[in-house]
């Protein structure tokens, strides 16, 4: 295990954790926040995999625009996931 491998494994664990949160949380806003964190770390993983082009795209799209569209959609609908 080199340092690079450790970094990659840690980031992958974080990505899975964020995605699990995004699926698991009942509050849609919290879910979107977790998805944003997950996509953030996904960009970091792209960065580690030597793909800065993809990381920039994921940064611009995932960090700003996707979160923005999701929050706007929740704003226009409702926040809680009803049971």
């Amino acid at each position: 295990m080199t340092l690079l491998a450790v970094l990659q494994v840690v980031i992958l664990i974080l990505i899975v954790a964020g995605s699990v949160l995004a699926v698991w949380l009942k509050d849609l806003l919290a879910s979107v926040i977790a998805l944003g964190a997950s996509s953030l770390l996904l960009a970091l993983q792209f960065y580690l995999l030597q793909a800065p082009d993809v990381a920039i795209a994921e940064a611009g799209v995932g960090a700003a625009l996707t979160t923005a569209i999701f929050v706007l959609a929740i704003r226009k609908t409702q926040r809680k996931e009803e049971e």
């Binding site: 699926v23 993809v54 609908t77 996931e81």
Partner: peptide, 18 residues
Amino acid sequence: NLVKIVIGVKIIENGVNL
């Protein structure tokens, strides 16, 4: 929940991209 379904699609997509 419909938004949750969209979130699920996004997660699949993240996985495939990765």
